[in-house]
Design a binder for these strands. Structure first.
Lengths: 145, 145
DNA sequence: GTGAATGCAAACAATTTGCACGTGT
DNA sequence: ACACGTGCAAATTGTTTGCATTCAC
């Protein structure tokens, strides 16, 4: 797994400066199993840094993405970020709609997909959405109220 | 296939008014095999309607989506619209990155995907991107220049 | 000390809304 | 005639940029 130290180390190796804010950002992603929106990040960071501005959050998200530490994904609800997957081999994800937690899917549908010879495939996207066990239980509890 | 007349008919059946602009919009989508962004639509419509405003385009796209005539998809580059697929059975798409043309994929990867019993699947997304034959040829021709 | 990081304000882009006017039914 | 559709302007939201100040190295 990526640890906060590892991420920070990678930043300084590239000549980037290790500020408190970046350390906190690294820690946040190191400890978050799923996706975070810029707004999520802003709100979390805002607790610690009162004068925080949104543009710095965006800048640092972009920096960390260019560093290869984070990856960005576009959902219906907007852009989100998560730690870049460590797994070397190609894989896909199951994503919890409630908590954003992701689980790997090793199966890749491209292997099974018949592609006409006159279509040159460049990339593909396979994502499964649903609710993980704990979120499912919470939802059930909430709907009983 | 959806024809312009059919779409327009569906609109008036719901009490919506059939304006020139909506007819043109219906025709545009009836004749377009792939995805169009709101901007694409605005530019196309603008040729005919000089005083056209963006908000009307958005409004009509939404109206046609609610009617079930169009479907909206979110890509990295932004939101796009296409005619709602007629095929009853669930399917996926191969999408040309150049012209936006879509081709159906009947295979659904969910059948093959092992889902843990404690994850409740709600929806999934499977999309293949690449270049169709004619766009591939154009690209090859362009890169020779 | 120097250059990169930050905050602030302002610019931008995409999309939505309120309102007065025009038009399909 | 009446209600819905349209254009215009303005509001919103999400994101980026320029610039002066501050801080890590």
């Amino acid at each position: 797994m990526h640890t906060m130290e590892e991420i920070v180390g990678r930043m300084s190796a590239r000549g980037l400066r290790v500020t408190d804010q970046r350390k906190t950002l690294a820690k946040l992603f190191a400890e978050t199993p799923g996706y975070l929106s810029p707004k999520d990040v802003y709100e979390y960071m805002g607790k610690t840094y009162s004068g925080l501005s949104f543009d710095t959050v965006y800048r640092n998200l972009r920096v960390m993405e260019e560093l290869g530490v984070l990856e960005q994904v576009v959902f219906e609800e907007g852009v989100k970020f998560k730690l870049h997957c460590r797994e070397e081999h190609h894989h896909h994800h199951m994503i919890c709609l409630q908590c954003g937690h992701t689980y790997p899917i090793t199966f890749c549908p491209m292997e099974q997909t018949a592609v006409p010879s006159d279509f040159r495939v460049v990339k593909h996207k396979f994502e499964v959405f649903g609710y993980c066990k704990s979120c499912e239980q919470e939802e059930a509890a909430a709907s009983e109220a």
